[in-house]
């Protein structure tokens, strides 16, 4: 059976993992209330998508 000849050194291990990273979520800012919103999603704060369209529920001050 094929088996590793050498234990992977920490250096090798680190090099392998050097490409592992997390990516931040894509965030836009709502055109209406300027609060952060995931891109291509209706704003959960004010219910607007782009400049128009009241979408689901409108919680307000």
């Amino acid at each position: 059976m094929a088996v590793p000849k050498r234990r992977t050194s920490r250096s090798k291990q680190g090099k392998r993992r050097s490409h592992l990273r997390m990516t931040p979520p894509n965030v836009d800012f709502c055109r209406r209330c300027s609060r952060p919103v995931p891109s291509h999603r209706a704003c959960p704060h004010c219910g607007y998508y782009g400049d128009r369209k009241v979408l689901p529920v409108e919680e307000k001050e």
Binding site: P38, H40, R41, A42, C43, P44, Y49, L55, P56
Partner: peptide, 17 residues
Amino acid sequence: IIKIAKRRLGDAGELAM
């Protein structure tokens, strides 16, 4: 179809209206 920011409870599925 408009995507919603909220995710589904349980499997965090992407929701849309």
